[in-house]
């Protein structure tokens, strides 16, 4: 049994010999401006989703993100049907250590740096093409629903909905879907944006928003958009 597994692993290895480019020195900025990101987005290689499927298997992405990109537990985000540009940007940021808020991200860095940009585009194409994870109806207190939909002009707080959509299903460019994502994941990311530990957002957009949120609001917003997975 183990031997069989070994053989299949080494076949994967032989198939993937030309994907090993680890170093991909790139003059990527330390932070994304709208200009620098849009330029990068235009240069995104055309993704091959079949190759992406193979790479996802090779990198054991399913361990945390689930068989078809639907996360099996509360610990990692679902990826199925996610915004393709967002997926590509995320992988690129992990590879270049632009997203390194906690040790979980070091795992993503270690993995992403074994891939080149074409690989990352292929992976993004694969996950974007999967059947999206189940949609939920956002729910919470009237105050939190108001915050999500209308923001808070007094604090110059843009509503979540204005970029992520009325239901949090995602928006233009690299704006990801947050609807039905894991509660722990959403909460963690909002906290990291608030503290500035996560800083790969374009024009510091999420940091500006999260900065004025209280910990309680972060918790409530995460619950508002999250699935019920415990």
């Amino acid at each position: 049994m183990k031997t069989l597994l070994l053989i299949s692993f080494s076949m994967l290895t032989t198939l993937s010999l030309n994907n090993q480019a680890v170093a991909d020195p790139d003059t990527q900025p330390k932070a994304w401006s709208a200009d620098s990101w849009h330029q990068q987005m235009r240069l995104m290689p055309k993704g091959d989703l079949y190759r992406g499927a193979q790479l996802a298997k090779q990198g054991y992405c399913f361990t945390c993100h689930g068989e078809k990109g639907y996360a099996p537990s509360r610990n990692a985000p679902s990826l199925a049907g996610q915004n393709q540009a967002y997926l590509y940007k995320t992988l690129l940021d992990f590879k270049n250590r632009l997203w390194l808020a906690d040790h979980k991200d070091e795992g993503m860095h270690d993995l992403a740096r074994t891939f080149d940009k074409q690989d990352l585009a292929d992976l993004a194409a694969y996950y974007a093409a999967q059947k999206p994870w189940p949609k939920i109806t956002p729910s919470g207190s009237p105050a939190i629903a108001h915050l999500a939909k209308r923001g808070d002009p007094q604090r110059l707080l843009t509503p979540c909905a204005s970029c992520h959509g009325a239901q949090g299903m995602g928006g233009p460019n690299e704006t990801p879907r947050i609807n039905g994502q894991s509660y722990l994941y959403l909460k963690r990311q909002l906290s990291y944006f608030k503290s500035g530990k996560r800083s790969n957002d374009v024009e510091a957009g999420m940091r500006f928003a999260a900065e004025v949120l209280s910990e309680e609001e972060i918790d409530q917003l995460a619950r508002y958009y999250a699935n019920s997975q415990k």
Binding site: R74, A76, Q229, K230
Partner: peptide, 20 residues
């Protein structure tokens, strides 16, 4: 531990734990 590659187990849903 909630900030590592390996996931936290504390408070994990019982059935999810068993299934995994």
């Amino acid at each position: 531990v909630f900030d590592e590659i390996m996931p936290p187990l504390a408070g994990m849903d019982r059935d999810t734990f068993i299934k995994l």
